[in-house]
Design a protein around this nucleic acid. Structure first.
Lengths: 303, 303
DNA sequence: ACATACTGTCGCCAAAATGGATACAATAAA
DNA sequence: TTTATTGTATCCATTTTGGCGACAGTATGT
C-alpha cells in the first residue's frame, strides 16, 4: 500500500478518533485502515495508537509522530500541486533556447506577449548559436533554424519556412555592374555567415538544380545583423534570411540579386524531447509560435 | 510499490543521473526504478525526467518536484527517528498518573531518580484520586492503590503490597483506655478515608475472618496525610497505609491499635494498555518501581 | 435488564500488483 | 567495426492486497 497511505490512514484515525470513521471518510474498508496502522507501527517498532474496542487515542509517540506527519503530508500535497498539470493552462517554468539573431529580433517580443497571455508561466530564454543538447542542459524546448533532419531523437516541429535571399546594396550593384550569373559570386566580394575556418561555400538552387559555389568571401561573421550592416554599407553580397533583412529590403537599403539563385529551404523548427505527456506549456507555445510566425510571417512582406 | 518508494526512486535517478546507477545504489532492479518513475509521472500527469538512451535529466517540473520531495523525505526521516525506538533506552515522554498521597510522598522523588538514570526521557506526572481512563486521557500508564481486579481491559502489574494499620496517638489511647475489641470502633471516634456521602464502613479481617464495621466516623477526608495529622492530634483511630504513617509510627507519634484486625490486602499496581510492543519506557519504569518499592518497601520498617 | 448496533481485529480467499528475467533498440566506448 | 551499457517493454510466477464475514467487547436505547 505504500508508506504514505499508511501515514495518511493513521492521520485520519487520529483526527476522527476512530478507525471506522476514518475509513468511511477516506473511502476505505476498515480492514485496510487497520492494516495500514499496524504496518506503520510495525515499521516504526512503536505503538502509535492505543485502542480499546470503543476508544482510540494516540500514545505519546503517536502524538509526536502525528504532528510531524501531518505537516509532511501537507507539504507533499503542496509539492504535487506545484508540479501537477491538472489545469490545461500552461504553468511553471518554460526553459527555452533559441538562436541569437532570431531570438533577439523576433522571439523576445513574441515571448513577452506569450507571457502576458499566461500569467502563471515563467520563461527562461537563453540565446546562442552553438549546438545545444536539449536533454542534458535541461531545456524544455529549443528553436533552431536549419534544414530538416530526421536523425534526432527529438521531436521536430516546423514552425515556418525561412526564406533566404542573396542581397546587396543598390550602391554596390551600381558600382559592380549587373549581376546575372552564378559564377560572378566567385569574383564579387561576398559576406559569409558562418564560423571562421569552415570555408566559404554557398549551396544554392539554380532554377531547381543544386549547385555549390565557393564564393569570394571577403568577410564572414556568425551574426546576421553584422552582415546586414556590412551589406548595407556596400561591402558585398550576402545570403541572409528575410527575418533579418526584411526591413532593409522594404526600405530599399538592400535589394535582391540573382533572383534565380535560391538557397535551399530551411525552416524555423522547435525541438523538444519525446514526452509521454506533452506539457501544455509546449503545446501552447507551438500553437502561439505558429500563429505568430507560421505560413506568412510578418517580416515576409515582399515577393 | 507505493508513492513513497516511487519518490525515493525518482530522487535516486536525479541524483545519480541514471536509472541503472540509481537502481544499483538502492539495491533494486532497473525495471523497478523505471516503473516507479513512470508511475510517479503518471500520477502527477507530468513528465519529470527526460531520457534519451544515454542521458537522463529532469524537466523544469522535475527539478521543482525534486527540490520539494528531497526535503519532504528528509523531514519524514527526522520524524521517524524521533519516534522510532531503535534503542532499548527509554526515550520520549512518559505520561503518568498516580494517586495524590503516594505520588507526592514517594513517586515524585522516585521519578526524579528515574529521570536522572534516563536523560532522554521526559515525564509528565499528574496526581489525582479520581478514576482515570488511561486510554482516553492519553496516559502511558497509571499507578493505583486498590484491590486487584481482573475486569479491566488494561494490563495490571502489581508492584508491592500496601500494608494498612489501625493507628492512634499514644495520648488518645491513654485517655480512652485499652482498645481490644472490634466493637469498640463503633463507639470510639474514627477517622475515615473516603468521599463524603459513602458511609463510614471499614472492611477488616478479624483473625482471617472478614467483617465489616460501621465505624463512628467523626471525621473523613479523601487525603491520608490530613487524617494522619488528625490522628497524631489525638482525634481518633485511623486506618492508614504504612507509606503514609510509617514515619509517624517510627517516631512513636502513632501506634497500632487492635493488631489482630487487619484490613484486606491492597496493592500498589501499575496499569497500562495492552500493547503489541511494550515500550521500553514502561518496561523500565516497572522494573525501576519494583526495585524501589517492591518486596519490602523502605517505609515498611516496623512490623 | 435486555437487545441492538457498532467497534477493532483476525482469518480466509480470489484478484490484482509486483518484481525478475529476458529481449530490444539506441548509444557510448574501445 | 565490436562490445558493453543504457532505458524500456513484455511476460509470467509469486506475492500482496483488499473485501467479506465472523468474533468478542462495548456503548446506546428501551
Amino acid at each position: 500500500m505504500g508508506k504514505f497511505s499508511h501515514i495518511r490512514a493513521f492521520l485520519g484515525v487520529v483526527e476522527h478518533g476512530s478507525f471506522a470513521e476514518a475509513a468511511r471518510q477516506a473511502g476505505l474498508s476498515r480492514s485496510q485502515v487497520n492494516k495500514a496502522v499496524i504496518a506503520l507501527e510495525e515499521e516504526l517498532g512503536v505503538q502509535l495508537l492505543v485502542r480499546t474496542t470503543r476508544k482510540v487515542s494516540p500514545t505519546s509517540s503517536g502524538e509526536a509522530f502525528y504532528t510531524h506527519a501531518a505537516r509532511i503530508l501537507a507539504d507533499l500535497e503542496v509539492a504535487e500541486r506545484a508540479v501537477r498539470e491538472d489545469t490545461e493552462e500552461p504553468r511553471g517554468t518554460l526553459r527555452l533556447n533559441a538562436p541569437m539573431s532570431f531570438g533577439a529580433l523576433h522571439l523576445g517580443p513574441a515571448l513577452a506577449d506569450f507571457m502576458k497571455a499566461y500569467p502563471d508561466l515563467k520563461v527562461e530564454l537563453s540565446l546562442n548559436d552553438r549546438f545545444v543538447d536539449v536533454v542534458e542542459e535541461g531545456y524544455d524546448a529549443t528553436l533552431r533554424i536549419a534544414e530538416l533532419r530526421e536523425d534526432s531523437a527529438l521531436i521536430e516541429h516546423p514552425i515556418t519556412l525561412v526564406r533566404r535571399y542573396l542581397v546587396a546594396s543598390p550602391g554596390f550593384i551600381k558600382s559592380h555592374g549587373p549581376i546575372e550569373r552564378a559564377e560572378q559570386l566567385k569574383s564579387l566580394p561576398c559576406l559569409h555567415y558562418g564560423a571562421l575556418g569552415r570555408g566559404h561555400v554557398w549551396r544554392l538552387l539554380d532554377d531547381g538544380k543544386a549547385i555549390t559555389v565557393d564564393v569570394n568571401g571577403v568577410m564572414s561573421a556568425n551574426n546576421g545583423e553584422v552582415l546586414t550592416e556590412a551589406a548595407k554599407a556596400g561591402l558585398g553580397i550576402a545570403m541572409l534570411p528575410t527575418f533579418i533583412v526584411g526591413p532593409a529590403m522594404q526600405s530599399g537599403a538592400l535589394v535582391r540579386v540573382l533572383p534565380n539563385l535560391v538557397p535551399p529551404d530551411i525552416h524555423l523548427t522547435i525541438l523538444y524531447p519525446p514526452n509521454r505527456h506533452l506539457t501544455p506549456k509546449i503545446k501552447y507555445l507551438i500553437e502561439f509560435l505558429y500563429k505568430r510566425f507560421g505560413e506568412r510571417p510578418y517580416w515576409d512582406l515582399i515577393e
